[in-house]
Structure formats: structure tokens, C-alpha cells
């Protein structure tokens, strides 16, 4: 199994934006760690970008955490995005788990649902 890494840094171009780079396999074994990384990123800025372009696998717990993080960000008035860099693994996994959809969920007031579309 590949190791997973969670690297959080400040986006130099945009003050207040935290970029969380997630790489490797995100599975239940690292779910606690992943949650911690997401909580940390959200606490550290007003906008969080989760970069999953180097992700090689994600299970249900990972997808759940991303969704919940988006929910929390919305509640706190912060922005939350996912950039997948066209990562097909990430897209396939989200699609086969039934997460991809056409419109955002009930919490999604800003039409920013992370599962809608997916080209950015």
C-alpha cells in the first residue's frame, strides 16, 4: 500500500488561502489523520483548496470527510474547493460511489458543491 501524505501550506499568491495537498492512498486507516488535516486547514484560513491531483485511491471515509469539510466551511462562511487536476482515479471513485451529481446539496447555497461538474 502506498503511504498517504497530507501537506498543508499557505498559498503565496492568495493570503488567507490554505492549500492542502493530499497524495497517495486515502483509506480508513488514515481517516483520523485526514480529518485532522482538514480541520487544521479550515482553521488556518478563510479559503481552503484541497489538491487531490496526486491522490491514488480514496475510500468512502475520505469522500465523507471531504463532503463534511465542505459543509463545515459553508457554515463558517469560508470557501472550500477541490482541485483534482483531472485526476481520473479521484473522479472514478467519486462517481462509482454515487457522489457526483448535477446540483449541489441542501447546504450548498453558493453552488460550490465539490461534486458538481468537476472540470476545475
Amino acid at each position: 500500500m502506498e503511504e498517504s501524505t497530507f501537506e498543508c501550506r499557505q498559498d503565496p499568491a492568495h493570503p488567507g488561502t490554505r492549500v492542502l495537498k493530499v497524495a497517495g492512498e486515502v483509506s480508513i486507516g488514515v481517516a483520523g489523520e485526514f480529518k485532522g488535516a482538514l480541520v487544521g486547514a479550515l482553521a488556518g484560513g478563510s479559503e481552503v483548496q484541497v489538491d487531490v491531483s496526486a491522490l491514488t485511491a480514496i475510500d468512502l471515509t475520505g469522500l465523507q470527510l471531504l463532503c463534511a469539510a465542505h459543509h463545515s466551511a459553508g457554515t463558517a462562511g469560508k470557501e472550500f474547493h477541490i482541485t483534482d487536476g483531472g485526476n481520473p482515479t479521484f473522479r472514478d471513485m467519486a462517481t462509482s460511489a454515487g457522489f457526483r451529481r448535477h446540483t449541489g446539496c441542501a447546504y450548498d447555497r453558493a453552488c460550490s458543491c465539490i461534486w458538481v461538474g468537476g472540470d476545475n
Partner: peptide, 16 residues
């Protein structure tokens, strides 16, 4: 279709 409406916020979610 995955239903996510019952999700708690991140802090309250048990990751396992």
C-alpha cells in the same frame, strides 16, 4: 445516488 444530507459537520464526524 449517495445521500449526504445526514452528515454532521467536520468536527463532529467520526472518521471511522
Amino acid at each position: 445516488v449517495a445521500q449526504t444530507a445526514g452528515f454532521p459537520c467536520l468536527e463532529e464526524m467520526n472518521p471511522e
